[in-house]
Amino acid sequence: MNRPGKPGVAGALGAALLALTHSVWAGTGAQHVSIEKAPQAWLAYAQRVSETLQTALSSDTETARRFNDYFSNWVDTDAGALAQAPQSAQAQKQSDGAPLPFEPPTLKVRVWLDRTGQVEQVQFDDIGDDVAEADLRSLLLAQTVGVPPPRMMKQPVVIRLSVGAEM
């Protein structure tokens, strides 16, 4: 839920793909495919995965609201400390259009999909709250991209979700 003057917590989670800034990882080992060598179809699919997960986190379900509330409370508590952090070149905006005084937190999420495009496994770093982590996992595992991954695409698909930014 957006409150006036507060960031939409799950807004714009998407499009900062780790695959588009660093690499697409192949399995759990150190082997990866660089952005320069990744086929365009893989990059487009990673973008679609990111958008699908963004939509889930922006939804009006009880689980999404609980997850968003966790980060709203985090922003309320820690925004003062974060205000000292430098902003990115592309300043984030509050729901009223004003720039946020800090960079919204980001989550690096590894996503594995089955042959139909259903999310079957996710991994992310500890976010500091067991309930919020369970909500995030539940939300993401319930998603389907709607189309199968491109043939021979390396998994997991690694994306960054920017929690708290507006779309």
Rank of each mutant, 00 (worst) to 15 (best):
A81G: 13
A81K: 12
A81C: 07
L82R: 07
L82E: 09
A83C: 02
A83G: 05
Q84A: 11
A85H: 08
P86V: 00
P86A: 06
P86E: 06
P86L: 01
Q87F: 07
S88E: 14
S88T: 03
A89F: 10
A89L: 07
Q90E: 14
A91R: 11
A91G: 11
A91V: 02
Q92I: 01
Q92C: 08
Q92S: 10
Q92V: 01
K93H: 08
K93S: 07
K93C: 02
K93A: 06
Q94C: 04
Q94W: 04
S95A: 00
S95V: 00
S95E: 03
D96Q: 05
D96I: 02
G97P: 09
A98Y: 09
A98F: 12
A98M: 08
A98G: 07
P99A: 09
P99H: 06
E103C: 03
E103Y: 12
E103S: 14
P104S: 03
P105E: 02
T106F: 15
T106P: 03
L107Q: 06
L107C: 07
V109H: 03
R110G: 03
R110I: 02
V111H: 12
V111G: 09
V111E: 13
W112S: 06
L113G: 04
L113Q: 05
D114G: 01
R115F: 12
T116K: 03
T116N: 05
Q118D: 13
Q118I: 01
E120Q: 08
E120K: 05
V122Y: 01
V122K: 04
Q123C: 00
D125W: 08
D126V: 00
D126K: 10
I127P: 02
I127W: 11
G128Y: 11
D129W: 04
D129L: 06
D129K: 00
D130A: 08
D130S: 09
D130G: 03
A132F: 14
A132N: 10
A132R: 09
A132L: 11
E133T: 00
D135Q: 04
L136T: 01
L136E: 13
L136G: 10
S138F: 10
L139T: 04
L140E: 01
L141Y: 09
L141H: 04
A142C: 08
A142S: 14
A142R: 14
A142W: 15
A142H: 14
Q143M: 10
T144Q: 11
T144C: 07
T144W: 03
V145D: 11
V147G: 06
P148R: 04
P148E: 08
P148Y: 05
P148S: 03
P149I: 00
P149D: 11
P150F: 09
P150T: 01
P150A: 03
P150K: 07
R151G: 02
M152D: 15
M152H: 13
M153Q: 13
K154F: 15
K154Q: 14
Q155P: 10
P156K: 02
P156N: 08
P156S: 05
V157Q: 12
V158A: 11
V158I: 06
I159F: 15
I159S: 10
L161W: 11
L161T: 04
L161F: 14
L161H: 12
S162G: 12
S162F: 12
V163D: 11
V163F: 15
